[in-house]
Design a binder for these strands. Structure first.
Length: 476
RNA sequence: GGCGCUAUCGUCUAGGGGACUAGGACGGGGCCCUCUCAAGGCCCAAACACGGGUUCGAAUCCCGUUAGCGCUACCA
C-alpha cells in the first residue's frame, strides 16, 4: 500500500480560524503518524473574496503552530484549465449538460419551491434541450453553466470517523460544476485537484458531509475511486453555536497576540475532538504524532473552552525554561514600549509559575525591571486601607532593615533572614512586614515570595521604590 | 420545510454488554503547604437526553422521540 497523501485546503477569504487550524493539525498529524505527505493547497477560486494578505496570514499561522507541509502551497486558481477540461469532458460524455437558466429564473424557481414548502431541486428543464436549441443559444452568446447529472441511486461511504454515511441521489440536484465564466465551482475544483494530486485521505470539517455525495459522484464520473473521507466535528462557541467573531477571538493570530504559546495551542486543539484514549492531557508533539489515529476522532462537536486553553498555556509556561520564553517575552515587551535593561531570564523564572500567558509574564517583568511602573490594584488598596498607619510604619521598618543588607549580600537567603529578624524584633509576623513591601513593589498582594521579589528587582530599585512609596502614602 | 450528522458532569473527555458505586482534566467549593498568590497534594459537588426493545445483564447494540448542529448558491 502506498503512503497516504493528505491535504489542508483553506480558502484565503479570512484569517486562519481555529477550526481550520485544527483541521490542518489533524491532517498534519495523520501525515506524520503514517509517514505520508502533507500537501497545502490554497483554494482561491472565489476571486471576489480571496486575497494575498489572507494567504500570508494563513501560512504564518500554520508556521507559528509548527504545522509544516511537504508540498505546496499550490494555488487552485492555477488549475482553471484542467477544471474546465474536466467539466467539458463530462459534458462530452453525456454526464453533464449545458444550462441556460438565468439567475432570476433560478431564484424564481427556488422561491416557488419554498412557498410550496418543497425542497428545491433543479427541474432539469435544460436537460431536455435539443442540440438545435443549444446551438441556437450558443450562437446568440447566451451565458450558460454546466450542470452535473446526479443519478437517483444511493451514494454511501465508510467515513473514517462516522462510519457509514449514506445519501439518496434523488435528494440531491443537478448542481452546477462550471460557471458561465468557465471557472469551476468548489465541488468540481476540489475533486479535480484531489485526483490530480493523488490525495488518498480527505480530512476536513463536518460541514462538508453534504458535499461528499456530490464529490463521490464526480469521482466516479471522472473514472476514479474516491479517497477515504474523515469528517471532523465542528468547533462551537460557549453558547453551543458555531464559533464566530461574536464569541471573541477565533483567529489563531488572536491567541498569538494574547500570549498563548504555540505548543499549548497545538496541544489544546489536538485534544479538542480527538483523544488518545486514557487520561492524557499534556502531550508533547512526538507523543501526539505517535498516538494519533483517525479512529480517535470524536463524532460530536466540541465547545472551545478558553479557560482550559489558558490553564494548559500555564502548564507549558511553568515547564519551559526561561531561555525558551525569552523571545516571545521580549517581543511582548517591545509592543508595550518597554526596553530590557538587563538579563530577563532570572525575572522570567521568578514570575512564570504564576502566569497563564506571555502577556501576563511580560507585564510582571516590566514591573520588576522598574517598580515605578506598578499600579495599585484593588487588593493592594484594600490592604493599605485595612492596615492604616501600620502599613507605613511596617514599610519603613522593612526599608530600614533592608538598607543594612549590602549589595554583595542582596540575595534571596540574606533578604529572608533580614526580614525575619526585623519582624521578630518587633514582635510582628513575617507577613506583616512582607505584604507592605510586596504592595509597594508590585502594587498587588500577589507575587513570588517577597525575598525573591526583592532579589530579582535588585537593591537599588527596591530601596528607592520603598522610600518613594512610603513618602507618597503620606502625601495622599 | 427537505436531507444529513450528533447526543456521558457547566466544558473537554475515558468508556466498545458484566471490571461502573460511571474514571480523568478544566472550571467551582473546601483543606494542607505558606508572607500572599500560583504551583503541588488531598477531599467535595457535578453526567450516561427521553421512551421502547434485544439480552440473564445495557452508558455500551437496535428502533423511535426530543434537542442541537450542518448543508440546502453560477460561496468555499
Amino acid at each position: 500500500m502506498s503512503t497516504p497523501r493528505v491535504r489542508f485546503a483553506p480558502s484565503p477569504t479570512g484569517y486562519l480560524h481555529v477550526g481550520g487550524a485544527r483541521t490542518a493539525l489533524f491532517n498534519w498529524l495523520y501525515a506524520r503518524h503514517t509517514g505520508g505527505t502533507h500537501v497545502l493547497r490554497i483554494e482561491d477560486t472565489d476571486r471576489e473574496r480571496s486575497t494575498e494578505e489572507h494567504t500570508r496570514v494563513i501560512l504564518d499561522g500554520l508556521t507559528w503552530l509548527g504545522i509544516d507541509w511537504d508540498e505546496g502551497p499550490y494555488f487552485q486558481g492555477a488549475y482553471a484549465s484542467r477544471h474546465q477540461a474536466d467539466a467539458e469532458r463530462l459534458l462530452a460524455e453525456g454526464k453533464a449538460y449545458r444550462c441556460f437558466c438565468t439567475r432570476e429564473e433560478l431564484d424564481a424557481q427556488r422561491a416557488k419551491a419554498e412557498a410550496a414548502g418543497v425542497a428545491f431541486r433543479y427541474d432539469r428543464r435544460c436537460l431536455g434541450l435539443t442540440s438545435q436549441q443549444i446551438d441556437e443559444q450558443l450562437r446568440s452568446k447566451a451565458p450558460s453553466t454546466i450542470r452535473f447529472i446526479m443519478g437517483d441511486g444511493e451514494i454511501a461511504w465508510d467515513d473514517a470517523v462516522h462510519g457509514t454515511i449514506s445519501f439518496q441521489g434523488r435528494d440531491l440536484d443537478d448542481f452546477v460544476i462550471l460557471r458561465s465564466d468557465k471557472s469551476a465551482i468548489y465541488n468540481l475544483a476540489v475533486v479535480s485537484d484531489d485526483i490530480a494530486m493523488n490525495i488518498t485521505h480527505v480530512i476536513r470539517g463536518d460541514d462538508h458531509i453534504s458535499n461528499t455525495p456530490k464529490q463521490i459522484a464526480l469521482y466516479r464520473a471522472l473514472g476514479h475511486e474516491p479517497p477515504v473521507f474523515a469528517h471532523v466535528p465542528m468547533i462551537l462557541g460557549s453558547d453551543g453555536k458555531k464559533l464566530s467573531k461574536r464569541h471573541g477571538a477565533t483567529a489563531v493570530g488572536d491567541y498569538q497576540d494574547q500570549g498563548i504559546l504555540p505548543a499549548a495551542m497545538r496541544n489544546f486543539l489536538a485534544l479538542l475532538g480527538w483523544s488518545p484514549g486514557g487520561d492524557r492531557e499534556i502531550l508533547p508533539q512526538d507523543e501526539m504524532i505517535r498516538l494519533f489515529t483517525l479512529e480517535g476522532i470524536q463524532k460530536k462537536a466540541a465547545v472551545f473552552d478558553t479557560a482550559k486553553l489558558e490553564w494548559m498555556n500555564g502548564q507549558y509556561l511553568s515547564a519551559l525554561p526561561a531561555d525558551a520564553l525569552l523571545q516571545p517575552v521580549e517581543r511582548q515587551l517591545a509592543q508595550m514600549g518597554v526596553t530590557a535593561t538587563r538579563d530577563l531570564r532570572p525575572i522570567i523564572d521568578s514570575v512564570k509559575a504564576r502566569s497563564r500567558t506571555i502577556l501576563h509574564v511580560a507585564e510582571q517583568v516590566a514591573v520588576r525591571l522598574d517598580p515605578a511602573r506598578s499600579k495599585l490594584d484593588p487588593k493592594g488598596e484594600a490592604l493599605i486601607r485595612k492596615m492604616g498607619a501600620a502599613f507605613n510604619s511596617h514599610l519603613n521598618l522593612a526599608a530600614a532593615a533592608l538598607e543594612l543588607i549590602g549589595p554583595a549580600e542582596w540575595d534571596a537567603d540574606h533578604l529572608l533572614a533580614g526580614l525575619k529578624s526585623v519582624a521578630e524584633s518587633q514582635g510582628l509576623k513575617l507577613g506583616d512586614v512582607m505584604q507592605p513591601v510586596r504592595v509597594a513593589l508590585t502594587g498587588s498582594t500577589v507575587s513570588e515570595p517577597v525575598n525573591e521579589l526583592l532579589a530579582v528587582v535588585g537593591r537599588e530599585h527596591s530601596l528607592r521604590r520603598l522610600e518613594q512609596f512610603a513618602r507618597r502614602r503620606v502625601e495622599v
